[in-house]
Design a protein around this nucleic acid. Structure first.
Length: 275
DNA sequence: ATGTCAGCCGGAGGCTGA
């Protein structure tokens, strides 16, 4: 049975709850990684997800940021924040900002480690926010280096706030000075990718015009003026199991949408006894 | 069109972040 893992920057769980529940009911992902939940742990609305059969792990923050994992299968080894010396400031991890949560999902065909991230936006650039973005991506690179060494079926997904290549934007020229497309940001992303990860979408297609974000401003959606900034990066052991990767563009046309749409991978994990 | 949202504080609407 294939395993479906979706990543969705929902831009506020209070504002997006009806849309989110409709999406879960319509598309029934096995695992949903959420970013920008913008709510404290203690205020997270567990009930509607538990009613739908999801286990919930949250790394929340009041007002900003915040990530969560929903899983129909058991969640084990949940970890909040990048586990390095800079975590756990103000008890939130990640220097006081809740941007990372990981868990192991156990299935009858083996385990999958899911790392759900919300990278800093980094604007305006240059400046302290841009410096923080680059520092955070460097910490993520160290994490990704260690994870590769474990040779696990594992993935990173989420809002990376990086446009990897010009073909990942409708109008790349308009993003040249932006923290999402500056050479330093793209290099930081590619340093992680080139450790040995697979960009799941690009493993399936080299088509341009595949976007995950359209700004609310200026009729960006109407003009299809989008960018691709939500990504799945798979370890080699995970990439071997990739069936498909799809951007759920149709979600952007719904009532009161997020400015991001979900991206989903479908994996076929090894059968029992198959190493 | 300083053009859109979400959430904060605080009890309106200005501010921040994106």
């Amino acid at each position: 049975m294939p395993l479906e893992i979706a990543s969705f920057n929902i831009n506020g769980i209070r504002a997006r709850l009806p849309r989110l529940l409709e999406w879960l009911d319509d598309t029934r992902p096995d695992i949903a990684c959420l970013q920008e939940i913008k709510i404290a742990d203690e205020a997270f609305p567990h009930a509607p997800f538990e009613e739908r059969g999801y286990n919930v792990a949250v790394n929340g923050q009041k007002g900003f940021n915040g990530v969560a994992i929903l899983s129909r299968l058991p969640l084990e080894d949940v970890s909040r924040g990048l586990p390095d010396g800079e975590a756990d400031v103000e008890g939130l991890g990640d220097e006081g900002q809740s941007r990372f949560i990981s868990a192991v999902i156990s299935t009858d065909r083996g385990a999958l480690r899911v790392c759900n991230l919300y990278a800093p936006n980094g604007n305006p650039a240059p400046g302290p926010k841009f410096d923080y973005k680059l520092r955070w991506l460097e910490r993520l690179r160290r994490h990704a280096t260690a994870l590769l060494g474990r040779e696990e079926t594992a993935l990173y997904c989420g809002d990376w706030n990086v446009i990897p290549q010009p073909e990942d934007a409708k109008h790349p020229d308009e993003w040249l000075g932006d923290a999402l497309f500056r050479p330093e940001s793209r290099a930081a992303f590619h340093r992680i990718l080139h450790l040995g990860y697979t960009d799941a979408l690009r493993a399936r297609t080299d088509s341009p015009d595949l976007y995950t974000f359209w700004d609310y401003k200026g009729g960006a959606w109407r003009r299809n003026d989008g960018i691709r900034i939500d990504h799945f990066l798979l370890t080699p052991q995970c990439a071997d199991r990739l069936i498909d990767c799809r951007i759920e563009k149709e979600q952007r046309a719904k009532e009161k949408p997020s400015d991001h749409v979900p991206i989903r991978v479908i994996l076929d994990l090894a059968p029992p006894g198959n190493a």
